[in-house]
């Protein structure tokens, strides 16, 4: 699978990532090292390739916490040169891959971000989107405008309201089918 022997396999990196994250302490150094290993891989394989390799082997449908861990890892993978935020293009590609079947408004979200977001995506927005995808239905029920959602998500909701009110009668928002059974927020200490 890997073209060069110097490269640490994506499985290895992922399991080390989970190892680091399951211990509750600040592990900046270790994560930075891991990030370097990931960057070495980029010469041979793209993020999308790596994700496609990794995903079938992870049983992500079982519990929501495991998926959340994996979701965090995807953000981690997308970081370049240790930067805190990731580019919009990368974020959208990654979302399309990992949230497929898990977020009813995925297409709308990606379209919105592509069109309206000029800045990079910070980790908090990345993480909150998962929470958003879990607690908000396709008709946006469950969204609390007073909640602590990142501004980008607030703006997305406003945007959706505008669209639905302008063609309320005819088209309903077409979401993708998904078994969204995991509404429970999860904590990161059970791995």
């Amino acid at each position: 699978m890997d073209s060069s022997d110097n490269n640490t396999s994506i499985f290895e990196i992922y399991s080390r990532y989970c190892g680091i994250r399951s211990v509750k302490h600040d592990a900046k150094e270790e994560l930075a090292q891991l990030l370097k290993l990931l960057e070495l891989r980029r010469k041979a394989s793209s993020i999308v390739d790596d994700l496609n390799t990794l995903m079938p082997y992870l049983d992500l449908t079982v519990d929501s916490c495991r998926f959340a861990r994996f979701y965090d890892f995807v953000f981690f993978m997308c970081r370049k040169n240790g930067q805190k935020n990731i580019t919009v293009t990368k974020a959208i590609d990654a979302w399309k891959l990992v949230l497929k079947g898990r977020f009813r408004l995925l297409n709308e979200w990606c379209g919105f971000v592509e069109k309206h977001q000029r800045h990079n995506i910070p980790e908090d927005t990345w993480q909150q989107l998962l929470a958003f995808s879990r607690c908000v239905h396709e008709d946006l029920e469950g969204y609390d405008p007073k909640g602590a959602w990142p501004v980008l998500i607030d703006e997305f909701v406003d945007h959706m309201y505008r669209i639905t009110s302008s063609n309320s009668s005819s088209t309903r928002i077409r979401g993708c089918n998904c078994g969204d059974s995991e509404a429970e927020p999860c904590r990161s200490d059970d791995s």
Binding site: K84, N85, P122, E123, D124, T125, Q128, A131, G147, A148, P150, V151, P185, R187, S188
Partner: peptide, 18 residues
């Protein structure tokens, strides 16, 4: 607030994302 979270002055509470 988002900016302060990004700059590590604040973090979200693990128990309560709000």
């Amino acid at each position: 607030i988002e900016d302060l979270v990004g700059r590590d002055y604040l973090t979200r509470d693990e128990e309560n994302a709000n």
